[in-house]
Amino acid sequence: MTMSLTETPLNSLGLPKAPAETRVVVAMSGGVDSSVVAAMLKDEGYDVVGVTLQLYDHGAALAKKNACCAGIDIHDARRVAEEMGFPHYVLDYENIFREAVIDEFADSYLAGATPVPCIRCNERVKFKDLLATARDLDADCMATGHYIQRFEGRDGPELHSAADPARDQSYFLFSTTPEQLDFLRFPLGHLKTKDETRALARRFGLEVADKPDSQDICFVPNGDYASVIEKLRPGAGAPGEIVDTEGRVLGRHEGVIHYTIGQRRGLGIGGLTEPLYVVKLDVDNARVIVGPKELLATRIVPVREINWLGDAPFTSRPEWRLSVKVRSTRPPREAVVRPISETEAEVELLAPEEGVSPGQACVFYAPEGSRVFGGGWIWKGRSA
């Protein structure tokens, strides 16, 4: 296909504008990834505007390192903007974040689920409110430091896994809608290793080049979920019984919120002839139910709140042969996805998975290749 003299070539972000005429809002967490995105786009000549969201208590987080969107990380984002010479804004989203993410996180744990708040944050805050702010700033697109790829397909933009499987964040971004995907850009998704990102940071002279990656959920210091929930919901740590599947009492616990499906360690049960695992949480009766490992195997996974990213409508087929992830740390497994409605489905795993838990995401992938077809939320489970 030949381009006429009047056509404007696409820039590196896929837009028919010169970089200097293209405004890009970069979501900056203060980490090395989003800092590199901002610096790289500024270096390419784009009209960059950095935006950092203050998501939780700034005062309490000032000294907390390696978490996004508070304290020292806001300072780091601001410093990158000063070094590279583009404007930077900090928006106070504490109330929105608490209502949209933290409250549901606490309530889900109290209901016996194992929530993934990073997905809700992307869905309800970063790719909703922040994206709306980017449009208000007359941006042509919004860029983030997520490790995921966006390709222009025959029927519009497609979401694909990152080139580096070890850094891939597609599990946490399955709820990105087609409309959001049209506006979003992910400049790091094609990089093969994190070392490449850090090399770019050094090339641009960024002081965050060697900053460690964040490990914990930003509002959960040191991974201590229970203490955060007890603070948010006083009385949540009510003690109760640890029982087997027949209802026999094996021990006591100090709160259901301290346990997750599939847990083996830290049960505090002695004198057993075989290892036992948490197979169910009975929140109403404050009981932790334990059993042998084979009871964790699940084949049928009910999923709701589905976000579908396929070209054909989700309900246009009685079933879809896809690969699915039921945990962020597990590889995709072969499955049959049977639509019940546009937002609900039954997922049949061809090989049973252990530790499938309500509150986790079930993310859909192409059987071959890197395309992400969306996904939904596991809302209850039963063995089959």
Score class of each variant (00 low, 15 high):
residue 133 T to G: 07
residue 265 R to P: 13
residue 67 A to H: 03
residue 36 V to F: 14
residue 206 L to D: 02
residue 269 I to W: 15
residue 130 L to H: 10
residue 38 A to H: 09
residue 291 G to K: 02
residue 201 A to I: 14
residue 260 T to E: 08
residue 22 T to E: 07
residue 275 P to S: 07
residue 239 P to C: 07
residue 202 R to A: 11
residue 340 I to A: 04
residue 203 R to G: 15
residue 317 R to I: 01
residue 92 D to S: 11
residue 167 R to L: 12
residue 146 H to I: 00
residue 133 T to K: 13
residue 177 T to C: 10
residue 355 G to Q: 13
residue 9 P to Q: 03
residue 63 A to W: 03
residue 250 L to P: 08
residue 378 I to T: 11
residue 50 G to D: 08
residue 60 A to K: 14
residue 85 G to Q: 02
residue 316 S to K: 03
residue 384 A to I: 12
residue 114 T to A: 08
residue 49 V to P: 04
residue 164 D to R: 00
residue 211 K to T: 08
residue 173 L to T: 01
residue 173 L to Q: 02
residue 268 G to Q: 06
residue 300 I to V: 06
residue 8 T to I: 12
residue 149 Q to N: 11
residue 251 G to Q: 04
residue 130 L to R: 00
residue 41 L to A: 06
residue 27 A to Y: 10
residue 254 E to G: 15
residue 321 R to H: 06
residue 362 C to Q: 02
residue 61 A to N: 15
residue 106 A to M: 08
residue 231 K to F: 10
residue 328 S to M: 09
residue 267 L to C: 06
residue 71 G to A: 08
residue 340 I to Q: 01
residue 89 Y to P: 14
residue 294 E to M: 04
residue 370 S to R: 15
residue 278 V to E: 04
residue 173 L to V: 00
residue 156 G to K: 12
residue 238 A to F: 01
residue 379 W to V: 08
residue 108 S to W: 14
residue 213 D to L: 10
residue 236 A to K: 01
residue 91 L to M: 05
residue 45 G to E: 05
residue 371 R to G: 09
residue 145 G to E: 11
residue 6 T to E: 05
residue 3 M to T: 05
residue 88 H to C: 06
residue 58 H to G: 11
residue 348 E to N: 09
residue 56 Y to I: 00
residue 170 S to H: 06
residue 43 D to R: 15
residue 39 A to M: 07
